[in-house]
Amino acid sequence: MPMQAHEIEALLRKSFPNAQIKVDGDDGVHMSAVVIDESFRGQNRVQQQRAVYAALKGKMDGANGELHALALTTRAPD
């Protein structure tokens, strides 16, 4: 079943308690998320986004990946 924005945010909040998180999208399948967190400082985009996917614990992949598409933007705070 598709995931709602607040569910995605809650999951991300668990792994990134101090981050600025903004999740958009209303169909629950094609969603977008911006995560701005100190832990990303010095990491390249692949490392940053791997951490975000890890936080989503398998909601993304696999045949029953509820979240078919999550457009991600990640960076450290300015």
Binding site: V46, G65, L70
Partner: peptide, 9 residues
Amino acid sequence: IKEYSDWPT
């Protein structure tokens, strides 16, 4: 491929 790169999409 998702295992190979540890990337789910």
